[in-house]
Design a binder for these strands. Structure first.
Lengths: 206, 206
DNA sequence: TAGATTGTTAATCGATTAACAATC
DNA sequence: TAGATTGTTAATCGATTAACAATC
C-alpha cells in the first residue's frame, strides 16, 4: 500500500505496537494476538487488525501473531530496520540529558552531533560526544546527510534553527521547544512539550 | 458544557492555542482572529471557532478575539488559573534536567518533590530542591494532596511506580518512560517517549 | 475435528469543513 | 455604512467498530 494512503494516525500507533511487542517478548512470550495487544494498550482488537492490514497479512487464523516476525515487519514498514544519523541542537540541561540517553542508540538512532552556541559548553564532553559549535552544524548535516534533528534550544531561537535545519536537508524534527514550528510539508515535526501535556491533563482534575 | 461531552482531541488543542496566544502577545499583538491562529498553527479557522464554541463565545464579529481575554478564558477552562503541586519521580539525567526546567514553575506547576531510590543521589540538590528518598514519596503526595506526577524512571519500574502513584491519589501522569502504562480511567497519562516520535517520522523519510 | 483468531466488509460513530446569517 | 469575522448548522469526510467468512 502506498505511503500516502495510510492515515498518519495509523503510522503513529505502529511504534506503540512495536514497543508493546518488545515488552511481551521480554516477558518470554513468542506469540500474541490482536486481543492481547488491544487489552494491554487499551485499544480495540479490530483497530489493531485493521491498522496492520494496511501493510499486509502478518498473522495466522486461530493462532495470532508471531512476535519476532511482526516486529521485523513493523521495523521495515517504519524504516527503522537501519541506522539513522541524528543530531541534537542545544546543550542545555535537557539537550545534555538527551545526549546521555541510551534509548536513541539502542533503537538505531546514532548521535552524529550535539551543538550549542555557548563558548563555555563548546568542546566539553557529554557522554562520549563532544559539544560542537553550532556554526559547524551545517557542515556536519551536509556531510553526513543527516535527516533527523532534536531541537532542545530556547523558544526564541527554535523557529530560526528549524528553518536552518530544513534548509540543510533535515526532514524530521523532534521538537522539545515550547513553540509550534512553521515548516514546509516535506519536514515532519513531532512535539514533546511537557507543559502541553500537563495543561491537557489538568482539565480532567478536580 | 459539561466536561465529558467535549472531545479529548479538542481539549488537547487548547494548550496549543494558549501557547500561540502567548507568542502573539509577545509579538506585541493584542487582538487576533481564528484565521490568524489557523495560519500560524496549520489548522483551519473553522476548527478553531468550533473548538472554542464548546465553551462559550469569546470573540467579536468583525474584530476577532482579544488575546488577553481569550487566554484568561482558556486558562480557566483548562484549570490552569491556579497553582498545581507536582512531583518528579526519578532523578537520572532526564529527571534532573526536568528539575531545572523553569517552564513548569512559570506555567503554574510547582515542583513539590523530586524522588529517587539511589543512596548517592538522595540529599543532593537539583536547582533549589533536594532529592528525597522515594520512600518518602507517599507522605509528600498525601500531605500536599499532589495530583500530578512526572515519571522519569527506568521502564522496568515505571508500571509499579505508576500503580503506587495512582493509589496515592495522583490522577495525572506525565510519562517519560518508554512504556504504555495501565491505569484506571480516573488517572490520565500523557506520553512523551522520544523514540516513538522518531519512529513515527522515519516512516516519511526516504 | 473444534476452537480460536485473522483479515475484511459494511455500518456506525465522530471530527472536520464549508457556508452563511448575525453582527460588530 | 461597508467590510470583516464570529458562532453555528448541515454536509462531508475519515476513523472506529461490529460482525463474520475464511482458515489455521
Amino acid at each position: 500500500m502506498s505511503q500516502d494512503s495510510v492515515p498518519a494516525i495509523v503510522i503513529g500507533r505502529l511504534p506503540i505496537y512495536l514497543r508493546m511487542l518488545a515488552y511481551l517478548e521480554m516477558e518470554g512470550k513468542s506469540v500474541t494476538s490482536s486481543q492481547e495487544l488491544a487489552d494491554r494498550l487499551g485499544l480495540s482488537s479490530a483497530q489493531i487488525r485493521k491498522d496492520l492490514s494496511y501493510f499486509g497479512e502478518f498473522g495466522k487464523q486461530g493462532t495470532g501473531y508471531h512476535i519476532g516476525y511482526l516486529q521485523k515487519q513493523l521495523r521495515q514498514i517504519l524504516k527503522i530496520d537501519r541506522v539513522w544519523d541524528m543530531i541534537i541542537v542545544g546543550a542545555g540541561n535537557l539537550g545534555r540529558a538527551l545526549g546521555h540517553y541510551e534509548g536513541f542508540e539502542s533503537h538505531g538512532f546514532r548521535l552524529a552531533g550535539l551543538f550549542d552556541n555557548s563558548e563555555k559548553k563548546i568542546g566539553t564532553m557529554v557522554g562520549n560526544i563532544k559539544i560542537q559549535d553550532v556554526a559547524e552544524m551545517p557542515q556536519v548535516v551536509r556531510e553526513k546527510r543527516v535527516q533527523i534533528a532534536v531541537l532542545a534550544v530556547p523558544p526564541e531561537v527554535a523557529q530560526s534553527v528549524a528553518d536552518q535545519l530544513v534548509e540543510l536537508g533535515v526532514r524530521a524534527i523532534l521538537n522539545y521547544a515550547p513553540i509550534t514550528l512553521s515548516t514546509p510539508p516535506r519536514a515532519k515535526v513531532y512535539y514533546l512539550d511537557p507543559v502541553v501535556g500537563l495543561q491537557t491533563m489538568t482539565y480532567y482534575l478536580a
